[in-house]
Design a protein around this nucleic acid. Structure first.
Lengths: 222, 222
DNA sequence: CCCAGGCTCCACCGGACGGTGGAGACGGAG
DNA sequence: CTCCGTCTCCACCGTCCGGTGGAGCCTGGG
């Protein structure tokens, strides 16, 4: 895909100095070709549609349409361009949002020129490229021990349930009525009521919404 | 911290050929110094305790004690050494486990020698270093679009609720009865029932457990 | 062998829930 | 001003839920 020969790049930033700087840095590499510039997200959509670049360097903070919105639009219309988000700040939320939108890279503006060139090359090849601090955020996001307290408690309590009770509890937390559960498990309604009752006792709750809470807490993956 | 001058490295792998290879690659860099080798996790603990390296290149698959277990032990005893996990395979689980244990890097054994040297230097400086495919796994882990679908739907539907209805819906999903909600919001039970009713209509559900599902889906942060 | 525990079911009851239709007050949009 | 939406409440009614106290059945362990 793309540049076996030359990697076509579009630079999107509202600051003329930044655009000039990027053009100079990337232009210094013989295998990179800055084929277009845009000053905001709206502009970027046009330029990218026209130039069909391999890689887009996209600022986030821009007037009219910001870089994340532009990235969303591009991905929606199935662009083949890989997008590197380039920003001064790396707030947690922006990083996750950008990556969820399908950005291939997330670089801080303090990235060394040489690294920037490397990043563009790698992204053009389909590899991801993140600044170290962004990588750290990603690791932190994945590592998070979640809501350990509630989850442990929920698991402990749920572990006391018998097989059948567990099935019933699951059905309850799916929002089913006793009658529906009875049908679904091929049981009498009376039996379901018995099971639901012992689930209440074992989980120390008094209504089915609270059962749903426990079940969902315990299931909460990741 | 550590190597302003020389980065002290320990290589841990049960395969003599791999150790020799790594020693050659890293030894070729004047600022890197391979100060020790270990053939398994158990051995590694001793060598690292003795040599106090800046960076450890740690294989996962090893006899006696594997690399992940060794990493855990090292971190438990508060080692200052940064650990790069080096393996042929990059299963999802191993990656997450390694990072949760505090590994600073996760590289595949097909990493280019030059990149390996770069990785050791960066990790020595406290930066993370992941192979592209590992980064992709992390991104995938964070992206999970499945959750997103339910969540968007839930948010959309919940957005239709009025302020009051939203409060009532929250109370409902906390497992409160109508009477409790009435007391907590200083309302008549009749009013609560009305609100609950319109919540059902707007969310297109028929009982309060299903309301709890929507509310929790929409709230599901991370 | 018996007993404990799990699964299945039953009857009864009061209270909570869910659906329907209405009403008065208030505030903002047209 | 009138209309519309929101918030507040009311009454009625059938259903479902949750609690209590049973009862058989089967399996596995002491």
């Amino acid at each position: 895909m793309a540049g076996v020969s030359t990697v076509r790049v579009v630079v999107v930033d509202d600051d003329p100095l930044v655009r000039a700087g990027l053009r100079m840095i990337l232009g210094g590499a013989p295998d990179l070709d800055v084929v277009g510039e845009a000053v905001d997200g709206q502009d970027a959509l046009d330029v990218i549609a026209r130039e069909l670049p391999d890689v887009v360097l996209m600022d986030i903070r821009m007037p009219r349409m910001d870089g994340l919105a532009a990235t969303r639009r591009l991905k929606e219309r199935g662009t083949s361009a890989r997008i590197i988000v380039l920003t001064t700040f790396d707030t947690d939320e922006m990083v996750l949002t950008a990556l969820q939108l399908g950005a291939s890279g997330f670089l801080l503006k303090d990235t060394a020129p040489a690294d920037l060139v490397v990043a563009v090359r790698r992204v053009a090849l389909g590899e991801p490229m993140l600044s170290p601090s962004v990588t750290n955020q990603l690791i932190a996001a994945v590592t998070r021990p979640s809501d350990d307290g509630r989850r442990r408690k929920a698991r402990t309590l749920l572990a006391r349930l018998t097989e059948r009770e567990r099935e019933v509890a699951d059905a309850v937390s799916d929002g089913m009525t006793n009658t529906e559960i009875a049908r679904s498990l091929h049981l009498g309604v009376a039996t379901v009521k018995t099971h639901v009752g012992s689930v209440f006792t074992k989980l120390e709750v008094t209504n089915r919404v609270q059962v749903a809470r426990y079940v969902h807490d315990a299931a909460d993956d990741r």
